[in-house]
Amino acid sequence: MSYAYLFKYIIIGDTGVGKSCLLLQFTDKRFQPVHDLTIGVEFGARMITIDNKPIKLQIWDTAGQESFRSITRSYYRGAAGALLVYDITRRETFNHLASWLEDARQHANANMTIMLIGNKCDLAHRRAVSTEEGEQFAKEHGLIFMEASAKTAQNVEEAFIKTAATIYKKIQDGVFDVSNESYGIKVGYGGIPGPSGGRDGPSASAGGCCT
């Protein structure tokens, strides 16, 4: 299938916060209450449309446990977006956000778009982290924020798509050199780089037109 762009995402966060379930809900539109433990990394992919352009999201779903961090770190490289997930019913998963963020800042490219997701918002009665706290943390660290539920699918699409839209905007704004794949963006065969997408493309073609 052709796409204008391919964005690589990575999903990170403590073990058991629902990373794999978010992915499954996004790619397959279903919820699996008993999901196998993720060892290493799993992959998911889905096409979305932004600004009438087909965009393929390739999503890397990682294992959350501390002892896998050394592996997870190597996946940050070349990711355009990250979903940093915590569980609103477990305070400690929120407390660990700072260390996840530090990892991401250290090992990812500086322009990586990070979306903070407070998952399991269907379990409001067991809430241990308020929405405001989530918002506050996101604001402090320059992240996009949403509460979502992999179980009810609430905000799941939105989270993935909003992240993609942010990345797309960065491309439009010329933040990325899309020809450099280390930013986690590939220009597809089916797509024409946007008017200001990429530094080389437009100037070259514009030059062609004018002369």
């Binding site: 060892i39 896998f68 592996i71």
Partner: peptide, 9 residues
């Protein structure tokens, strides 16, 4: 760490 996880895998 990387190794043992791979061994599991």
């Amino acid at each position: 760490n990387g190794m043992h996880s791979q061994l599991f895998a």
